[in-house]
Amino acid sequence: MTLLDLLGRRRSTPVRLLGPPGPDPAQLRRLLNAALRVPDHGRLVPFRIIALHGPAQARFAEEVAAIHARSEPALPATAFDKDRERYAAAPLILVVVACIDQAHAKVPAQEQLLSAGCVAHNLLLGAHALGYGAQWLTGWAAYDAAVATLLGLAAHERIVGFIHIGTAREEAPERPRPTPADVVSDWAAP
């Protein structure tokens, strides 16, 4: 399969369709090495990755549900069950964290954030290339201060996304996609 074939077939596999097995240690190392090959103006490495798997992942799922219950106690219990299920379904979650230097003299914060976003996208593409399903999610937890504290994030860090990786139990559904004619235009000089 060529790279363009891979890109043309890439789609997110909903977390509810992901299960074991996930990447073995050698595959994970290969995936991470590929994911880190992103544009990085100034070679700042404005990102890091936190791996959630095994008992720690189960504990994280419980903690996230508890944080949500404390912040929105009026929600039905099914909302907190959904949190637990979301973070426990796939055998591996890679949390991509942007480490932004807002005061950097040469590299704007937006470029640093986009570099971290490229890491997340490379993880999706790499998982797909290895034959796994994956989904990039944010949701309320990506923006919650208590979740950031739970993960040990510093003040200059923020979650770009939770990349859920596992084996698809069924084929991911396709969705309508824009065509180049929908989004590309030619610029004409004034």
Rank of each mutant, 00 (worst) to 15 (best):
L130N: 04
V107I: 09
I93V: 12
L125F: 14
A56N: 09
A69G: 09
E111F: 02
V64C: 04
L75Y: 12
I49W: 04
F47S: 05
R84A: 02
H53C: 10
P46L: 09
L137W: 06
V119D: 02
V45Y: 14
S115W: 01
R84C: 09
A79Q: 12
L75A: 11
D81W: 08
P73C: 09
S71V: 15
L75V: 09
G133P: 07
P46S: 05
P76L: 03
A127Q: 05
Q135M: 15
A89H: 06
D83V: 07
L124C: 14
Q110V: 11
L92Q: 06
H68P: 08
A134T: 03
A74Y: 15
I50L: 10
V107H: 02
A79Y: 10
I100F: 08
L94M: 13
Q135H: 15
A116M: 07
P108E: 04
W136E: 13
H53K: 12
L92A: 03
A142R: 06
A98W: 02
I67H: 00
S71F: 15
G139H: 00
P108W: 03
A65M: 00
A120H: 05
L92C: 05
V97T: 04
A58N: 10
A129Y: 10
A88F: 08
A103T: 14
G131P: 04
A127D: 07
V64Y: 01
A51Q: 14
T138Q: 10
A105Y: 06
G131W: 06
L130R: 00
F47T: 07
T78E: 12
Q102D: 15
A77T: 04
Q135D: 13
G117Y: 08
A90F: 02
K82N: 01
E111S: 01
F47W: 11
L94I: 05
Y87H: 03
A66S: 13
G54M: 07
F47A: 12
R48H: 14
A90R: 01
G131F: 07
E111V: 08
L75K: 14
I50M: 09
I100G: 07
A69L: 07
A56D: 09
L94C: 02
A90Q: 04
E85V: 11
E111R: 01
A142M: 09
A79C: 12
C118Y: 11
R84I: 00
P55Q: 10
P108H: 12
L137V: 12
A127K: 06
L75N: 12
E63Y: 08
L113N: 12
A79H: 11
Q110S: 13
A51G: 14
H68R: 14
D101T: 05
I50K: 06
D101M: 05
I49Q: 09
A109S: 11
Q110A: 15
A65L: 02
E72W: 12
H104E: 07
I67K: 00
R84F: 05
R48W: 09
C118A: 13
L124T: 00
V45Q: 13
P76T: 00
L125R: 06
A98T: 00
A109W: 10
Q135C: 10
A58I: 08
G54Y: 00
P91K: 01
D101W: 04
A134L: 01
A103F: 15
L124R: 02
G54E: 08
R70S: 11
A109C: 10
D101Q: 08
L52C: 01
T78W: 14
